[in-house]
Amino acid sequence: MDRQHMRSPLARAMGLGSAKKGVEHWWAERVLAVALIPLTLWFVASIIAQTGSDHATFITWLRMPVTTIMMVLLLVALFHHTALGLQVVIEDYRHAGSKFAALVIMRLTCFGLATAGIIAVLHIAFGG
């Protein structure tokens, strides 16, 4: 044990602790939260404006460059923020093996959904 830092050499070597990954996670969650304020408000306002619109109208709206950019940014920020938030929930309520499995499944699901959403938007934006 390092007497000055009250941490074992192993913990230091692994780079764990409140001033390492903890701050990174905390900070990223908040940066994404700030980004999500305008992105989600734009999304909700747009969806309200699109209420009852048919497929052709929706596609025309989504193909506008501003809409495409905003939607991709929303998906990136939304699923990154979701992964960070759900990670804390899983870490608080699941333990040992099931925690590890839940974290892996959750993280991969978020990656998969974000990719699927972005590809769908780009397919609509650039598809023939």
Binding site: D54, H55, A56, F58, I59, L62, M71, L75, L78, F79, T82, G85, L86, V89, L113, A116, G117, I119, A120, V121, H123, I124, G127
Partner: peptide
Amino acid sequence: RISGVVLSLGAVVLVIWLLAAAAGPEAYA
């Protein structure tokens, strides 16, 4: 915390909705 978990499920609906729109008018309908 609960609303965050609910919104995670809402995000799944968002992706399904976008995929349906990309698939065509029938799936979107």
